[in-house]
Nucleic acid binder design. Sequence first.
DNA 1: TAGGTATTATTACTTACTATAAAATTGGGT
DNA 2: ACCCAATTTTATAGTAAGTAATAATACCTA
Lengths: 188, 188
Amino acid sequence: MIVLARIQKKVRQAALQEQLKSSPFFTDDALAEFLKVSVQTVRLDRLELGIPELRERTRLMAQGAQNKLKAIATSDVIGELIDLELGRSGISLMKITEDMVMEKTKVARAHHIFAQANSLALAVLDAQAAVTGVANVKFKIPVRFGEKLIAKAEVVKKRGNKYFVWVKTRNDQQEIFRSKFIIVSLEQ
Amino acid sequence: MIVLARIQKKVRQAALQEQLKSSPFFTDDALAEFLKVSVQTVRLDRLELGIPELRERTRLMAQGAQNKLKAIATSDVIGELIDLELGRSGISLMKITEDMVMEKTKVARAHHIFAQANSLALAVLDAQAAVTGVANVKFKIPVRFGEKLIAKAEVVKKRGNKYFVWVKTRNDQQEIFRSKFIIVSLEQ
DNA sequence: TAGGTATTATTACTTACTATAAAATTGGGT
DNA sequence: ACCCAATTTTATAGTAAGTAATAATACCTA
């Protein structure tokens, strides 16, 4: 049966992809044993599916994860800075990825939304040395995977070395978060 | 000069480690060319320094970074849960790592401290579906690399589906952070 | 010049592949 | 019943980036 054989092949290739997703360090040998076919078949399948060999996969993972970690670690602004008028206002965009949501509820963890707002508030001030002093925040509506959040920050007042910054965040429909920060400048 | 030779070797091995730190995907061949020695020397050096071969290094990086990302991603509690009395109180510990501090000031980003407190507040409630509604937080003292933060959460009130949780965080000397959360349970 | 450290060379073996060709199987269609 | 074409398997040669072991040099100086 041409038709049946083709189906079996498809099924096998799907199984291969599935298996590699969960354990990406499988060699072709191990995959062959797992799928009960020859090594060459596994290699043909990989070729057809455009899946690189173990070493290449490993290298890509190492690089990718490294870059990701570095990106998270070294960026003082969380999200993407779209607009910035120093000392006055700023806008940043952040997309809710799968690893920002809680396992149980699939609702975005509050601290990610807080992080976007807080880092934007600091960025707007451009004080060489400033730290967050106080924050009053309200999470109005739960946010879920895939949503794009736009945070707008505005410096509303300055008193001595204290800056009052308001940040409002919305998805494409409504305001989901609102916050007031008091940022303390450590300069002179 | 034995001494001089030994010094040169030390210097070369230091250069090797330095180079691998910045570009860990160098092959022995490339390293040999870079250090102007033979491949064998590079291998002896690696052996002495306990540095695994390129493939092994890559594998370790891929796994390590993957686990790190996964750990950050899938842990609904940030920090280490030390004590938990469900519905009443909880304690968590978090160490400030280098990638939690801002580049300029070397002060811990506020959202990490917030994250510890917020996730602890949620953990204490154990509501199957709960989200943060409001948070009032005060960062009293800047926190720096290496410090260990102990957060203590306490459920102080319940009104309908709203829980009032206070979290106080201290390093080994003093209270550095104080927060009040209103957590909303989504279960009817 | 002997002796020890450091370096280089040589050879055999390993893993996990790519690439190509050839043979075997399979399960229907006619 | 037989053949066909896709599919699968086997085989062979070549590659990169190593390990491991052993031997040969080079260096340097006491």
